[in-house]
Structure formats: C-alpha cells, structure tokens
C-alpha cells in the first residue's frame, strides 16, 4: 500500500507520521499503567533510561566522521572534569569545527 504525494496525500502521510509518533509519546505511560511498579521494574527502568542516551550516542561515534568523534570525546572529557553541561557541549562543537577545518 502506498500514498501518492498529491497535496491531499502529503497531508495524509504527515498525519500517519504524526499519529505513530504520538502513540510512542503516550505509549510508555499507557503500558506502565498495566505493569506493577516494584523494585525490579524500577531498577530495569532506571538502568534502561540512561542507556537510551548511550545507545544513541555510541553508534553516532562509530557512524560519524573524525569531527563527530572529536566532538563526543571533547564533551566526555570536559564533562568528567567540570561536571557542567554547557561548557562540555561548547567544547564538543568547537572540537568538531576545528577537526573539520583541519582535515
């Protein structure tokens, strides 16, 4: 099944994407209404929660160019030293920009 990219079709495509995305936004809370919250479930969720971020970022380093890797490395180092997010992000962007100007 396919939708033609006519003006009406495009609106339909956008609605489909919007609806699926909305379901993912509401889905976690909808599902959890049926899962009893005990220590084990909370422990699963807390380990999973920050793992989401790691699972986004690590493949980014593998897929990205040298600049992307420099950016993540710089953010990591500054974050471990200072513990402050904005300087760490700024260092990451600066590192990517520098590496890309040089190579």
């Amino acid at each position: 099944m396919a939708i033609e990219t006519t003006p009406l079709g495009i609106v339909l495509i956008i609605l489909v994407m919007g609806l699926v995305t909305l379901l993912t936004r509401l889905g976690g809370a909808l599902l959890m209404a049926y899962v009893p919250l005990n220590r084990r479930v909370e422990s699963f969720i807390s380990a999973m929660a920050s793992s989401v971020l790691i699972a986004i970022v690590v493949p980014m380093a593998f897929a990205g160019d040298l600049g992307a890797r420099a950016a993540l490395l710089a953010t990591l180092v500054v974050m471990l030293i200072t513990g402050r997010a904005l300087p760490a992000i700024a260092a990451g962007l600066a590192a990517a920009a520098m590496v890309r100007q040089l190579f």
Binding site: T24, G27, G28, I45, M48
Partner: peptide
Amino acid sequence: RHILMGAALY
C-alpha cells in the same frame, strides 16, 4: 525511544 522515556517518568 519515546516509549521508554515515558515509562521512565511514570
């Protein structure tokens, strides 16, 4: 990932 994020805030 939104599903997991929503669940984490539950």
